[in-house]
Computed example of a mutant assay.
Amino acid sequence: MSAPNVVVLDYGSGNLRSAVRAFERAGAEVTLTADFEAGLEADGLVVPGVGAYAACMQGLRAVGGERLIGRRLAGGRPVIGICVGMQILFETGIEHGVTTDGCGEWPGTVERIEADVVPHMGWNTVDAATGSTLFDGVEEERFYFVHSYGVRRWELDEPNPAMPARVTWTSYGGDRFVAAVENGPLSATQFHPEKSGDAGAALLRNWVTSLS
């Protein structure tokens, strides 16, 4: 059986080369590109992201990334977002008093973490969702975070109680926020699996394996 084909979306944001290498090690055949058709046809699409929410959305829109994500999800085709690549999947981001529209695939707001020391930078455990595919076998492991903003409330009304979204949480400095989401073909992590050692590698293998 051939390796799943994965596109890492190149829209000017994210640790692109490290993401490519991480997904290759996870067993995928990886292409780094901004090409819309390649992204549409791939078995899986990776949406990375580092930096400001507004800048990431600007870059994403410049390559048609918002439409690409929507088209893939409409066809039930897998997408995974990483760090700010997760945040932009939500409805709105608020940074430094500036409100920016996101992709709107999930309702909710990305806002500053309420902790004494920000950014949240370093290794942290998670409260993995029951039945998670991503965290299968690594539920008790630690993952590497580096961010100042997050989603502190999950606001999706579940249309199908038999297939609920699986939301994984973490806590830092007394605040609690979303660490990962698995919702049908759309998955995302606030932390960086490509920087999370063996645990992150196992999580990426779980996602790549699910593409087969």
Rank of each mutant, 00 (worst) to 15 (best):
T92G: 05
D43V: 00
V84L: 15
S212A: 14
T109E: 06
M163W: 10
G64W: 08
T31V: 14
L134E: 02
M57W: 10
Q87G: 12
L40N: 11
T31C: 06
G39N: 14
L89I: 06
V47E: 05
A162N: 05
A199P: 01
G14S: 04
N124L: 07
H147P: 08
V7N: 03
S2G: 07
W106N: 02
I82L: 14
L32W: 13
N124H: 13
G137V: 12
L60I: 09
V30T: 12
G51Y: 07
A26F: 03
M57S: 11
V30W: 03
R166E: 00
P48R: 08
P193H: 05
H192K: 10
L45D: 10
I94H: 14
G97Q: 11
L68Q: 10
P107S: 05
F23T: 02
T209F: 06
T170I: 06
L60F: 13
I69R: 11
E194H: 13
A162D: 14
E66L: 15
V98A: 14
N206T: 05
S187W: 15
G174F: 06
R25C: 03
R142D: 05
G122F: 08
W169S: 01
G131D: 06
R176D: 00
M57D: 10
Y144K: 01
S210C: 04
T109D: 00
L186E: 10
G108E: 01
V208L: 08
F177Q: 00
V84H: 11
E24K: 14
T133L: 11
R176F: 04
V208S: 03
N124T: 04
G70C: 08
G104R: 11
A129W: 09
N5K: 11
G27Y: 06
E182Q: 10
P193T: 09
T168V: 02
F143K: 00
G108A: 04
A201C: 02
A179S: 11
G85E: 08
V117L: 13
S13N: 04
I88L: 15
P4V: 13
V47G: 09
T133C: 07
F145W: 10
G174K: 08
S187H: 15
P193N: 07
S2P: 15
V181W: 03
Q58D: 14
F145C: 08
D35K: 13
P159T: 02
G76M: 14
V7K: 04
W207K: 01
R153T: 15
W154K: 03
D198G: 03
V110S: 03
F143G: 00
I94V: 15
W106F: 15
P164W: 12
T170G: 05
V117C: 03
G14M: 03
V6E: 06
